[in-house]
């Protein structure tokens, strides 16, 4: 009788661990990985884990390795929202001037002496961040009337406070950096961050596969896809599939 050897069932036997030890995360052998934006475009959704994370895989190509990854659904959506808010906030894609909206009821703001000087001598600093003042600046009483605000602000109860903070922050920047800073005002940026966070997908929200895919596609188009608006990581590699495969093959 011929011996017909057929091995199509794979056996994977990783190194025997101490069997009494409780298996924990972060045991075993590790390899250092840096994710690239290119990897993100190739992600394939596997499913949602615990209604919190999106498990996905990336195949191995010549320049990247096959691996399993987890995406924090909240962090990822927060990042996507933040970047879309930022690009919406500017008038043009050059990102110089913020969009501005006229106020129905103007707001009067009391200024300090330094602020008055800043508003009078450097109106362009306030113009770029979307603030418009009525032209009759009252230098005697240090009063200014705001008629337009950046569009990203909402007319809530804290509006006056926010404008005051914004003017103070811009004035400080003017004296410290001599106005050379052209990035977005931290006051407004923090507002966008919290706005991005509040409306984002939360932990515990079940997502359909299509929604997961949509989220990952949007994430892969972000400038800083690997962290949420608050700097926490949004994507984490979990397992090297290549090693799993080669290990299997060798044992066969």
């Amino acid at each position: 009788m011929p011996s017909v050897r057929v091995d199509n069932v794979t056996v994977f036997r990783p190194q025997q661990q101490n069997t009494t030890a409780h298996p924990t995360f972060f045991q075993g052998i590790y390899t250092e990985v840096k994710l690239t934006k290119e990897v993100l475009t190739k992600l394939k959704v596997i499913g949602q884990f615990g209604n919190k994370f999106i498990a996905c895989s990336v195949g191995c190509t010549t320049d990247s390795r096959g691996m399993l990854l987890l995406v924090d659904q909240h962090a990822a959506h927060e990042r996507v929202r933040l970047e879309s808010f930022i690009s919406d906030a500017y008038e043009s894609s050059k990102r110089i001037n913020l969009k501005t909206s006229k106020l129905e009821s103007k707001v009067e703001i009391n200024l300090t002496k330094t602020q008055t000087a800043a508003v009078r001598n450097h109106p362009e600093v306030f113009y770029t961040c979307g603030l418009r003042f009525d032209s009759d600046l009252n230098t005697e009483d240090d009063l200014v009337t705001v008629n337009s605000i950046p569009s990203l602000l909402t007319t809530s109860g804290t509006l006056k406070e926010t404008i005051e903070n914004l003017i103070e922050e811009r004035t400080q920047a003017l004296y410290v950096n001599r106005g050379v800073s052209d990035s977005m005002s931290p006051v407004l940026f923090q507002l966008l961050c919290s706005k991005a966070c509040h409306g984002a997908i939360r932990f515990g929200d079940p997502l359909a596969l299509e929604q997961c895919t949509e989220l990952l596609t949007a994430l892969s188009k972000c400038d800083f896809p690997f962290q949420c608006a608050h700097g926490r990581p949004s994507v984490m590699p979990l397992l090297d599939l290549n090693t799993l495969k080669t290990k299997k093959k060798r044992l066969n």
Binding site: Q17, G28, E32, T36, F226, L239
Partner: peptide, 21 residues
């Protein structure tokens, strides 16, 4: 902005199996 990679992660190459006991 041009830096397109993430922080360095430690990825598992081999995993401990679940204990039989």
């Amino acid at each position: 902005l041009s830096c397109d990679s993430s922080r360095t992660f430690y990825m598992q190459k081999l995993l401990p199996t679940n204990t039989s006991k």
